[in-house]
Design a protein around this nucleic acid. Structure first.
Ligand SMILES: [Mn+2]
Ligand SMILES: [Mn+2]
Ligand SMILES: [Mn+2]
Ligand SMILES: [Mn+2]
Lengths: 221, 221
DNA sequence: AAATATTTTTAGACAAATCTAAATTATTAT
DNA sequence: ATAATAATTTAGATTTGTCTAAAAATATTT
């Protein structure tokens, strides 16, 4: 596995995340994600195509090749292991880990990462509940569902929060929700799509549509 | 404190180390240290002078300003804390830590480093025995002396090894010498400047001039 | 003190990564 | 099917960091 520049790595990772949705990624989408101009995207796409990391035909959008996906998963592995380290060992709060991990992820010593993984006890998910790829780039495709779509009275466990802001963290903390919290939906109101939820022995409480949209849960087969 | 590029940081750190000897650093010295061409050094010196990090007049060599020294000590703090982390927590051997730390040192989040320091228990020296600057850039100026210059029968403690190669590590391991080993010099031979040394309860053993040159010790006032 | 050698700087080129503005292609609406 | 709009690419410029080759300054020898 060759080495890539910090810039190339940021592009590759962003494409990986974007293509989870649509499969194909457009110039403008990626430009928005990376806060760069469309012209810069086109330049980099040519370079990454030349390196066989992605499929790209002018005006047709792009998607990672198998090699590109492997590279992306390596970066994501590093990012999430560092996030876990920052939260677990250095006691960073949830909303502080991402920015620092954004830099640490580019230190690409394989030995460093594998030893870090071991030191951390081979964690399966990062502090936001996202799965951590293993040495071979294998990643759990967690069959999770948005809290909005969880059926009534189905016991489920919070597995992921997609927003990473300080603001959502404050709200979740107030409502005693963390990754791993067990809960079930008791009621939904079509007026504002808010819902009432029961978690453990706490009294039932309300969750807004905006909040529920960002919470993902897993529940038994 | 502003942020500097990886390249600028590597230059600043190298100047700091070189000027510990002579006080003033020359273009060729720094070029050799950084494996760059002299022309590149001159270019960067102009830039660092413009940023007031060093004193520089054409043809006169250069040295860090007070601001430059502060920046250097920040980089060295990061480098040595990561080296300690790698050796102590991730069980890297002595000769493996430097290369990885060379990259980690450029992740310049103050919070990251201060929390890492705390997590590690505020270590005073890195795995090579070099002192670690504190948050304010204060660094122990350890009154240490080269083993070559240690008087006979003076009990001293190994505090620093200046070479960091796998080869010297192998030799030191064989002779049971680590940072912290207590020893005294029993005999010196002027023919080859080799010496006989006693450490703890081990039988007396021989150290070559080349090896002694790289070992530094501290001894009581 | 000249001549020679060494060191350092300058001038000009180049690659990487970005940008702005203009040109091109594709999409959407009439 | 045209025209208008939006998305994308191209052309050319800029910044950072590096290099080579030539020029200039300094140091060393004779
Ligand atoms: Mn993250
Ligand atoms: Mn990043
Ligand atoms: Mn080191
Ligand atoms: Mn470095």
């Amino acid at each position: 596995m060759l080495n890539y520049s910090t810039s190339e790595e940021n592009y590759i990772k962003a494409i990986y995340h974007l293509q989870q949705q649509d499969g194909n990624v457009t110039t403008n989408e990626l430009a928005a994600e990376l806060k760069a101009k469309p012209a810069s995207i086109t330049d980099m796409m040519k370079k990454l195509k030349a390196k066989k990391l992605l499929h790209y035909e002018p005006y047709q959008g792009f998607s990672l090749s198998n090699e590109g996906k492997k590279v992306a998963l390596g970066i994501i592995r590093r990012h999430r292991l560092w996030e876990y380290f920052l939260a677990e060992k250095l006691k960073f709060t949830w909303d502080e880990v991402h920015e620092v991990a954004e830099h640490l992820e580019h230190v690409s010593s394989k030995k460093l990462i594998d030893k870090l993984d071991e030191f951390l006890g081979f964690p399966r998910v990062d502090p936001h509940g996202d799965p951590i790829p293993d040495q071979d780039g294998k990643i759990e495709t967690s069959r999770q569902v948005c809290l909005l779509d969880l059926p009534f009275n189905k016991a489920a466990v919070v597995s992921h929060v997609s927003d990473q802001s300080t603001e959502i963290l404050e709200l979740l903390k107030h409502k005693n929700i963390v990754i791993g919290t067990k809960l079930e939906v008791k009621k939904k109101f079509s007026f504002d799509n808010s819902m009432e939820v029961k978690a453990g022995r706490q009294p039932v409480f309300t969750i807004s549509e905006q909040l529920a949209k960002n919470i993902f849960v897993k529940y038994g087969a």
